[in-house]
């Protein structure tokens, strides 16, 4: 049992390390050949890199053990039968809940709060920074929830995806002209940040499950596209958040 567990851990650690390897190689190449400068605190950085690999590994093993099996079976269960109302509520909650826990979003929103504080956009206190970072994250989570909800309606009705995307683009452009300058960069980034480790597999399971259980829907055309929509709406919502605060 312990032997098995450690073998699984070692295998996943190796995979996570492989994710990090290209970054380490590019940075090492630049440091050694082009910059020719030593890295300060190199010991601490290696500790940090080790923690990143260990953390990512535990996180992914945990997802595969806990979140993904129930998430996927629920996505299939809601997609196959049951009322449309519950399906829509579930779609929203899934988008919202997975986004709040998304690691990259936690990290970037904290960074955004630091930048906003040093730029005197918000007060430079821990409490103000936390509430700003949390506001940002909840704005993004709400928008992802809404995006998945609309995306599910799209699959049910069979609307073409590009109509949604193009109207999303138009909304983004309109909002850009009204939002404060300081929020635009973060807002545009939040789209790409939100859709990673947790959100993508669960949302794809919902989309593909739904489109393969409805007659006349092609999982290839209708199953994909939820993620695209989920990376558009955060831009609109974060700009709205920037206008409110």
């Amino acid at each position: 049992m312990i032997g098995d567990a450690s073998r699984v851990l070692a295998k996943h650690m190796l995979n996570s390390a492989k994710d990090l390897l290209p970054i380490v190689l590019v940075i090492a190449f630049f440091q050694v050949l082009i910059l020719q400068q030593p890295i300060p605190n190199i010991g601490e950085m290696f500790v940090g890199l080790f923690l990143v690999v260990l953390g990512l590994t535990l996180f992914i093993i945990g997802l595969e053990m806990g979140l993904f099996p129930i998430g996927e079976s629920m996505a299939h269960a809601f997609a196959k039968k049951g009322s449309v109302a519950w399906l829509l509520i579930f779609a929203f909650s899934l988008g919202f809940g997975t986004t709040v826990a998304e690691p990259a979003l936690i990290a970037v929103s904290k960074e955004a709060a630091d930048v906003a504080a040093s730029g005197a956009m918000i007060e430079n206190t821990t409490a103000a920074k936390r509430s700003y970072a949390e506001g940002l994250r909840y704005a993004v989570a709400l928008s992802v929830g809404l995006a998945i909800l609309i995306g599910v309606i799209r699959i049910l009705k069979g609307w073409p995806i590009h109509l949604l995307i193009i109207s999303g683009y138009i909304m983004v452009v309109i909002m850009t002209f009204f939002a404060p300058k300081e929020i635009i960069g973060i807002a545009y980034d939040s789209g790409g940040v939100t859709t990673s480790t947790i959100t993508v597999p669960l949302v794809t399971a919902l989309g593909v499950g739904l489109s393969s259980s409805i007659k006349g829907r092609n999982p290839m055309i209708d199953g994909f596209g939820l993620i695209a929509f989920a990376s558009l709406t955060p831009m609109i919502f974060v700009m709205a958040y920037g206008m409110i605060i």
């Binding site: 940090g48 890199l49 260990l54 953390g55 990512l56 535990l58 996180f59 945990g62 806990g66 979140l67």
Partner: peptide, 15 residues
């Protein structure tokens, strides 16, 4: 699994 997710996130964020 949930406990692992929690610890994984903590290590990842500190790293």
């Amino acid at each position: 699994g949930f406990v692992l997710v929690l610890f994984g996130l903590v290590f990842f964020l500190v790293g």
